[in-house]
Design a protein around this nucleic acid. Sequence first.
DNA 1: TGTACATCAGTGAACGCGCGTTCACTGATGTAC
DNA 2: TGTACATCAGTGAACGCGCGTTCACTGATGTAC
Lengths: 190, 190
Amino acid sequence: MRQISRQTYHHGNLRRAVLDAALQAIAEAGPAGWSLRELARRAGVSHAAPAHHFGDKQGLLTAVAAEGFTMFADALERVAADGIWEVGVAYVRFGLDHRPYFEVMFRPDLYRTDDPAVVAAHERAAGALIAGAGSLSPTPEHERLAAIAIWSLVHGFTSLWLSGALPESTTGDPETLARSMIRLVLSTLG
Amino acid sequence: MRQISRQTYHHGNLRRAVLDAALQAIAEAGPAGWSLRELARRAGVSHAAPAHHFGDKQGLLTAVAAEGFTMFADALERVAADGIWEVGVAYVRFGLDHRPYFEVMFRPDLYRTDDPAVVAAHERAAGALIAGAGSLSPTPEHERLAAIAIWSLVHGFTSLWLSGALPESTTGDPETLARSMIRLVLSTLG
DNA sequence: TGTACATCAGTGAACGCGCGTTCACTGATGTAC
DNA sequence: TGTACATCAGTGAACGCGCGTTCACTGATGTAC
């Protein structure tokens, strides 16, 4: 185990430390509200260190997106066997629980979408979603439409909730609300 | 009519010119990819002029959001009498046709959400959406859920389409696709 | 087990640049007389 | 109709600052012998 307390010259885990600082900065100010130098300050390292690992801000956000899509795909695959219902709920929960990742992942102008790690995890996530939707469709055309509908539904709910756009009257646990909403739609789609 | 060709000392329409430059800049680089100075350059005016009208970037984006929500509310109210179906389609179409506005409107960290013009137009838009959903619901609880479902559906579809997240296999006219999707969901929700 | 050396993660000083902000100024316009 | 003046939209030079980038460097680590 390398040292955590930063008493050596070599950090040992600088890459991770910078990523964590980025996630915190995104949570506080969005993906655009900070500079690489501020990140270095947060992480307590030299201002040149982030560039040493990630090249530039786009490279750093590419790493965030890759990590995010990997966690996202894991979360969806974990419940894939339980049906499209649970996949939809997992989609919403991921967005609520991992807001900084979510805010980067669906803003492709922020990072390099052709990064191999991003592409692979993205495809895994899409696969879990489409496979789930396939289970409830009689025809291929209907299946395609149903998959897009479910995806739009859970993505829209998550985005609206995160941006605070839903009326204040909409109180209570967002996951419970999402469950009710998905049940309402699925009761007729299936 | 004031001069357009900018041969006088006074621009005559500088506020409009800066707003238009902002919309173009947002279309090209997102709401974060430019500075007030760059905007002034685009609009062909002194670099101090935008601040003269809008104070700072947040003030400028507040004006964009207010204008956007006004246009949005107009578009939804225009089809409100035709039912929730057409309101949903109008929602999607607004996002597709007015991407720069849409990208600002649902990112409340970018502007002052307590601006009176923003608040008024926002409430008008929400009213049109909720009134439409009310038409297809037997109970108040169901109505509330149905409204959130429709809203999530059309908002999610628009966001996913704009970010290019929908699979490339999903070709064709997005509005047609949105119509099919909304019909599929409404056929059972109503 | 000890020594020499290559590697490379991380440092920190220095650079030029574009930024937002300030401020004294310019000059077109509208109004009073 | 003409003159004087107040207003204020817009200018442009100057400022200090934080930024990304460069680059010679430091020093911990791993490997060869």
